[in-house]
Design a protein around this nucleic acid. Structure first.
Lengths: 350, 350
DNA sequence: TTGAAAGCGTTACCAT
DNA sequence: ATGGTAACGCTTTCAA
């Protein structure tokens, strides 16, 4: 411990909190062992409640007390390095304002997975390409990846993840990715239900309102495609930003567009548009029917009450169980699973 | 390169895919080294673009090609174990439907941190106690924790995290936690602005609408306290759930409550209540003034347009920079930082 | 310019 | 019943 006179950061023992950030040592299981007067193995046994070996009660107590005193917390990285695998479930998110349904669903899912003893981690992946994202995720060696559609995964990306040890890669969306467990939460269904509802009520010339905002295409595109797929529906698309101005601009030219109905990406856009149309002097639903999607509570506050398409998401527990099964028996879940249904809710705006 | 488009065919013996889930080996840097005919050290140098050492271009190419072919992705845990520290920033979330502002803010923050070369991970912590959460987070050895208030951290919890190597623990909320870097995003300010706005406009008997839902107390309680703190405000609280029924029930007894103004937890609750009051035959703002918070776009769609309190959140870049500074120089940022301001926005409902 | 070896914190096997 | 030891994958001196 001799101190060099030239060293700019002298390892001086006597100085208190040095200005030059002396990184305080993190207690390890070896420290606990030393303090408790036992071996590291014993510490491990005690702290992990190992059944295979019998440790005397006094020893257990000593170890526990030492760990407590040191504030010892095991090092997850070291543990999983040794174990050769993790219990990490990666949940890529892009934080698109995707609504309370989705939030509630994510919550449920996290809880359910945690109950199954997985560590759930959300990885913000906004703006990453599939390749970048797959690499970044793979570095963490997750046992499962649940990609809810914010990122489009290629077959190659899925392969990367699997090679990195992921036992289950679950994608949502209409198209199953080769190698992944496709979990069909088909947004097309939403558009199809909306358009069908409108057609049933005698509206055929449907204007589909598509968000101008980035990051929503993955939801809006299939919804649009679904609307297009409905027989008898004459669909035209209109981009609109999530602002009053954009809505007003679209409403101002609505009469000239010759559309007798509007299907907006979701209820928020629908509300915005409906208000703008009304301010423009058009009667809803007489002049133009308006339907949204997601069944937001706030949509019922406008007059007329907003018709919508409600999504029946799978329960978090259901999906969690599916994930767990896929992890334990990867070959099992290669087929597609349909989990989402959509149903049009008629209120007053259609 | 006459390679089949199929799998790279690992040097497995003759056994095909066994039914008993043989975990396929994850390629390591040793595998890359072997394939490239170099040492593991060289692989590390090449793949990390080590400046200190000069590797010949042909060698670099060989290594890169081998890594590519094997689909090698470094093992983050092993790397940080060796390094003795991580670049992991933990962002506990509870997924309360906290609004688009917040989502946008989180997005910004993630981006900014990623630009600073941190790995940002959200850890769903809904329903965990402070102790459980702190332990779980500490296991991941994050270099920083940004707790946005969903979990109340005790001084002991902060100590746990710091002992586990966290160089910065940032909490938001009015009360700084000892040992943490307090980042004051004081929700009290919101309530104070709302109440002051109402008092200014001659309303003193303010009914504060508090959500019945769990998990929102951490936001609603300080907002209420802020309203109480305003001189001249006579505050009474009314719990309300986020349903039309609950709003209608509250509205039905509103006349008897003798309140000439309502301040709702946020714009969503305010919209719900305002509609219910109107349906009950009360005039807004003549009979009762209504103000919300968060300045949601949808609040402008009702008539009268909803007055609100707008939050000026710090930019993600700003907070990210603060975190980075705290990480690099932990002693620096022990003082409180005020980052949030609130301002009442008068529209038509007050 | 490249290779050999040590060591990060854990746990599982094998001795005692 | 407990302790020594090897190994997980990676980076980084040090030596050739």
């Amino acid at each position: 411990m001799s101190q060099s006179p030239k060293s700019p950061t002298p390892p001086t023992p006597a100085t208190g909190p040095s200005p030059l950030t002396p990184p305080p040592p993190v207690p390890t299981s070896a420290d606990v062992a030393r303090l408790a007067g036992v071996s590291r193995a014993t510490v491990s046994y005690v702290l992990n409640n190992a059944e295979a070996v019998r440790i005397s009660e006094p020893t257990r107590l000593k170890v526990r007390r030492a760990a407590e005193e040191l504030g010892y917390v095991p090092h997850a990285a070291a543990r999983s390095l040794r174990a050769g695998h993790t219990r990490l479930v990666l949940l890529p998110t892009s934080h698109v304002p995707v609504g309370p349904l989705y939030s509630a669903f994510l919550n449920e899912l996290q809880w359910a997975l945690r109950r199954l003893d997985y560590t759930v981690v959300q990885y913000g992946s906004l703006g990453l390409t599939g390749d970048e994202a797959a690499r970044a995720w793979a570095e963490l060696r997750p046992v499962a990846v649940i990609s809810l559609g914010e990122i489009t995964l290629s077959a190659h990306n899925v392969a990367t993840l699997k090679r990195a040890g992921a036992r289950a890669v679950i994608t949502m969306g209409p198209d199953g990715v080769p190698g992944a467990h496709a979990l069909v939460m088909d947004q097309q269904e939403v558009g199809a239900r909306a358009a069908a509802h409108l057609v049933e009520r005698g509206r055929r010339r449907i204007g589909v309102v598509v968000p101008e905002e980035d990051g929503l295409e993955l939801f809006s595109a299939p919804r649009l495609a679904g609307a297009r797929s409905v027989a008898g529906a004459d669909v035209e698309t209109f981009p609109m930003a999530y602002t009053e101005e954009s809505a007003a601009a679209l409403a101002a030219r609505w009469r000239r567009l010759g559309r007798d109905a509007a299907f907006a990406y979701n209820d928020e856009y629908a509300m915005l548009l409906m208000r703008a149309l009304q301010d423009e002097g058009l009667a809803v639903p007489a002049d133009v029917a308006v339907i949204g999607a997601d069944d937001l509570l706030l949509g019922r506050l406008l007059r007329p009450r907003l018709s919508t398409v409600r999504l029946e998401l799978p329960t978090g527990d259901h999906l969690a169980e599916l994930v767990d099964r896929a992890v334990r028996e990867p070959s099992e879940l290669t087929r597609r699973h349909d989990l989402m249904t959509a149903v049009a809710v008629h209120r007053e705006s259609t």
